[in-house]
Design a protein around this nucleic acid. Structure first.
Lengths: 126, 126
DNA sequence: GACTCAATCCAACAATTGTTGAAATATTGA
DNA sequence: TCAATATTTCAACAATTGTTGGATTGAGTC
């Protein structure tokens, strides 16, 4: 991940609603949740939520796919890991003992193959 | 860390210059770097850098202390770890195997006692 | 095919954030 | 004390971001 993508991902998360949505999806796991359910659960209007989900999608932090009448969203764990990696890269310049090996520890936590939803919706440029 | 603090930290990082500054400080380690050197290295004006450093400080992501005529800044690694924790909390709702144990792995990486600079400047409300 | 529900798109407006130069503050050394 | 250097504060302006309601698209149901 490079600088620009990281900035975009951080900006996507730096909003009350989007952060709440993202954390909810992180906890929901790969099966995700339908947009309407998220909106109801968090008390966000459909239009606003749609806007915010698009932001998260553009930043590579969520995936979406159609499920009949609904559109489901799930957190893109691999995208998140790349972001965390980027933030901790070269922490303490080769002396991981200083910061508890934050960078190395993240490096080790590779994500298995992403679960593949039935129908993947295309995503804006990543 | 709670929601509001996390939003503030993410917003602080969600800017080209601030992200560059923060990563530079993460790599510099506990001894940090003087404001002027950062400004020169990244090609940012003194006024702009001061503004951005204040943002990072308010978000609890950097520390600062006076060193003679200079003011040095260093990344607040513990602040960063809290943020990463917050993002990955309860990942996959108790099934860490799904996301490679991202949350648990971070939990384990506790930071040792923060290195204490000679003279600590006070920080805005955290 | 018409109807309904889920979600998105659009456009106007409001609010927040970033940039700039000039002035102010703090420290060092002559 | 005075001049030089480092950094911050202030204020005006420019740019970006978020919100809202209404219109639109797509899928299922009668």
């Amino acid at each position: 991940m490079e600088h620009e993508a990281a900035t975009a991902a951080l900006a996507a998360l730096a909003h009350t609603h989007r952060l709440a949505v993202f954390r909810r999806l992180v906890q929901a796991g790969p099966s995700g949740e339908a947009a309407g359910d998220i909106a109801r659960a968090l008390g966000i209007g459909a239009t606003a939520l749609s806007f915010h989900l698009k932001e998260l999608d553009r930043a590579g932090l969520v995936r979406s796919w159609r499920d009949g009448r609904f559109i489901r969203y799930s957190a893109d764990i691999e995208g998140m890991r790349q972001l965390l990696d980027f933030l901790t890269q070269d922490c303490c310049n080769g002396h991981p003992e200083i910061c508890g090996g934050l960078a190395k520890v993240l490096d080790a936590a590779s994500c298995g193959p992403a679960p593949r939803p039935a129908v993947l919706k295309s995503r804006g440029k990543r």
